[in-house]
Amino acid sequence: MYLTDKELHNISGTVISECNHPDHAFDADKQIKTCSIDIRVSNIFWIPKRQRNSFDLGRRNIFEVSPRRMWKKIVLADNESITLKPGQMILGRTYEKISIPKENVGKLTTRSSFARLGLWTAGNCDLVNPGYSGHVPLELMNTSPNKFVIHPYLPLSQLFIMRLDGELGNSYDSDQLNSKYVDDDGGPSVWWRDELVQKISRHIASNALTKPVLERLQKEVHKLDDRCLFRLDRFIDSKTFSNSDDLLSQFAKSERARFSLYKFRRTIFLWAFPTALASLVIPELLQPVSKTISLLKDFDASLYTRIVATTILAFPAAYYFFSKKVRFFLDENDRQQDAD
């Protein structure tokens, strides 16, 4: 049974949250209709980086199939827009963060006015599970021969809330289901995590971990990013644990070593490049090094050294500067040190 406008008004404070832009707050009087809530598209989109002729859904090597590596994230300003070409599909997300009560289920579809133009917003996945909370992904697809110019905060979709007929066994956010889109950011698919998380969970169960360790690891597994999750998979396969309680501490130790090396390399390159760049203007900075190099008699060895050093350091420095911060599985002390 669909909830009516009166019922939607009563639960709208629970269902809709995190409309953080001061100029685009949730307006229940305008957005709640007869039996649905108008939902806006956010200013965050993902567009494909490249085309693939085939996509093997049976493979789970992160460097080959992780969908997030194939999408480019775009954040639009309020006055910007994105164009959806005929036949094109891009990924957006709802501006409103949606939380479905455990006694209800949601259905997100395209508003009729936009559907009649040939725009799909939910693709073929319109279900919002009981207990789900997050920014629902919008699979924006243009089935018309015309281009669509999409602006942030347009109310493209509508959310229906239905009451479940029976009692729910497990909600989407329950520990038993190990759902991978808990507190979803609405980004690209991570379908391969299902198999990997199940494999890790089976290993955890077979080693009879103590309850505190088991609860922490099951909680942490779902927080790990793609690369860290695969490192945990390889670590479990390559190690034998005489004491199963050592699994967390040993993996954290391995991650701590990786983390220290990452911080060292990142610090070196982020400081070395501006130093080398400054040496082009202030030759005295690399004078001790340049005196030991004499490659070409016809060139100024000092200038040659500075140019080569700056060029070599530019690429790793750009990588560490522009890439997202790498996440590691660290214990509380390491996390505190990282924060400091």
Rank of each mutant, 00 (worst) to 15 (best):
L196P: 00
L196S: 05
S201C: 07
S12Y: 10
N178R: 03
E80D: 02
R93A: 03
N10D: 10
K324S: 09
M141G: 04
R40N: 06
F160N: 09
L286K: 06
F269P: 00
K73P: 01
D5M: 04
L229Q: 06
V75K: 15
F264E: 13
V308A: 15
L117A: 15
L76H: 12
K6D: 01
K107W: 05
R335H: 03
F329R: 10
T143Y: 07
V213C: 14
E18M: 06
T121W: 00
L91Q: 15
L138P: 04
H9Q: 13
C35Q: 15
F235D: 03
F160I: 13
D184H: 02
W271G: 02
L209A: 14
H151K: 15
D331F: 12
L168G: 08
Q176A: 03
L214T: 15
A25W: 14
R227I: 08
Q176T: 08
V289Y: 09
T109Q: 15
Y2F: 02
L8Q: 06
E80Q: 10
S54I: 02
T110Y: 13
S260R: 11
N243W: 09
L286M: 10
D233S: 06
N142F: 04
T210C: 07
R258D: 12
L286E: 06
S206M: 10
S242I: 01
K107D: 08
T305H: 11
L57S: 00
K107T: 13
N207S: 11
F328N: 08
P188A: 10
C125K: 14
F26W: 12
L138A: 07
A278N: 03
R68T: 00
T267K: 05
D175E: 13
V221H: 00
G123Y: 07
P152V: 15
F269C: 01
H9R: 14
N333A: 00
R193K: 10
